[in-house]
Design a protein around this nucleic acid. Structure first.
Lengths: 300, 300
DNA sequence: CAACCGTTTTTTATGCATAAAAAACATATG
DNA sequence: CATATGTTTTTTATGCATAAAAAACGGTTG
């Protein structure tokens, strides 16, 4: 008897999205063609047809050949719960990051594949492939035939990460300044400036919104470098910060308020086409980010 | 019936290493203890015992409990052929790099897992895990449920690679200059200088030896940065250059001769503790390397 | 009794089967 | 006859079984 059954999270996720779509349409109207739905929801027709079948069984639609009549609006109970629609990889990433960032597990710990599979409720292959994929972030490493070892989010990790980040972002700032004034990135920068000022005015209550803004801002900066290795590295930064924002709540409001100001200084420097000013503002911001990161170290 | 049988390349590789070891010992002497062999050859006692068993069967040793008497020196036919001792990952990497660098396969090509498994004579899991592992180099990428796509060693890839390389190595040169004069890296630099001069004197015939020297030199430089992300990136550089040296034979002697001179200029700058001179020499070398790389592009 | 070997248990590596999903192909319909 | 649906084939995702290898355990021997 199988411990873990094969997941069909894609189908369930598409099913939920189709319910959302139906909600926007009045009863008595027809759903579009299978191919159109397939394009729109980014799934194969096979999946779409499985969804339509289920919708018909649930009497949400009446499906006969090319006619797909909406019978009733979906209710909350029609939806699959979010746990079922998440991909194995998402589940693993969240569980794993929570596990290692909680500090319950020590640096140098040997990671046991079958134990992880048991604890996280997924198969050993899923764990195995996740670990291989995840290893590119440098938080774990493996020696052949001996398995995986937790490197962990240590002080050195944070320092090395910050060093490279400073190297890359400084370059990105300089590349940004080289963009022609009609390049779309300048409009995007204006938009981000507005969003920053908006959030600044209501930061007391809404400081949690900063995390998304932060990611968008740095992603825009780095886009000027137009370099896949810099983008890849930003994925790592984003990962670390994502979970950092999620679990390290210390001084969060103050930190975010300060960071908004630092971002605005960089934006001002860029808009003034003032290389020196922008560079200094960037250095200030990254120095602050480095400090924050170091304060959140669990180990050493 | 299985298409592919499970490999035991580790055992075979250790067996060959044990034969090497026995060659250094005269007949009639005893091999050391199982644990000692295990430590020395970096394998578990289980593997060592399997090797000893095979050695006894082949009458190379007489094995009775703790007595392992050497009966005869190993012959060439005792050895497993190298194909059998290579790991699946090595096999895949070589075959895959040869395949994509040969230019027979176009950028954007969809990589079929089972086809690759068939062609390379390994299982689909092996291919799958290889692709995940290999994807960190950015030569392939995957979109969920749709499989892998060849990004390929394109002009942009080479340009972006070179950009980051210049960023990192310039930093490494500066970090190198900050090392205290009694740091071991200075002695290592002296040693490399000697090797470079030695090779320079016989470059006409032995220019193929440069590839190893090149890797060692850049690895030493980057070690000054003491940064895992910079080291990881160097792995990518090393991979590209390894196969580049292997298949791109155009002007190889001239290129290597020039590169030796460039390396020596960097070494001279470093030894003189002349930041400016070292930086310029490094920039020159990397500019030449960039040019070489771009000339070897298969696609675009 | 400490180092060593024989045996058992655990973990990792890897082939493979199969469900889920995508893609291709065939047929129908307006 | 172009576009849609119905059906089949192919490919990917993923659970799992098991051989290889490592690690642990326990008894032996000098």
């Amino acid at each position: 008897m199988p411990f873990v059954v094969k997941r069909n999270n894609r189908y369930k996720s598409i099913y939920n999205q189709t319910l959302d779509l139906i909600k926007t349409l009045p009863d008595g109207t027809e759903l579009s063609t299978e191919s159109a739905l397939s394009d729109r929801l980014n799934a194969s027709r096979t999946t779409i047809r499985a969804v339509l079948k289920h919708l018909a069984d649930e009497k949400v639609i009446d499906w006969r050949g090319r006619h797909k009549l909406i019978l009733r609006p979906p209710t909350d109970t029609d939806y699959f719960v979010s746990e079922e629609t998440r991909s194995t990889d998402e589940i693993l990433e969240t569980a794993f990051m929570q596990w290692i960032l909680s500090g319950d597990v020590n640096v140098g710990t040997h990671l046991n594949e079958s134990e992880m599979a048991r604890n996280f409720g997924v198969s050993t292959s899923a764990v195995r492939e996740f670990l291989i994929r995840f290893s590119r972030f440098g938080l774990i490493k493996k020696q052949p035939s001996t398995g995986w070892e937790l490197v962990g989010f240590t002080k050195n990790f944070a320092l090395e990460l910050s060093d490279v980040r400073e190297l890359f972002e400084t370059r990105s700032v300089h590349q940004f300044l080289k963009q022609p004034s009609d390049a779309p990135c300048w409009a995007a920068l204006d938009e981000l400036e507005t969003q920053h000022k908006d959030l600044q005015s209501r930061v007391e209550t809404d400081y949690l919104e900063f995390s998304t803004l932060d990611d968008n801002f740095h992603r825009l900066l780095n886009s000027a470098s137009d370099n896949r290795f810099i983008s890849d590295f930003h994925d790592l930064i984003a990962l670390i910060f994502h979970y950092h924002y999620r679990w390290n709540k210390q001084d969060e409001r103050e930190r975010n308020t300060a960071a908004i100001g630092q971002h605005l200084a960089i934006i001002a420097g860029l808009k003034a086409r003032d290389r020196n000013k922008a560079t200094v503002a960037c250095a200030n911001h990254l120095a602050a980010a480095r400090k924050t990161l170091l304060r959140s170290i669990v180990w050493d």
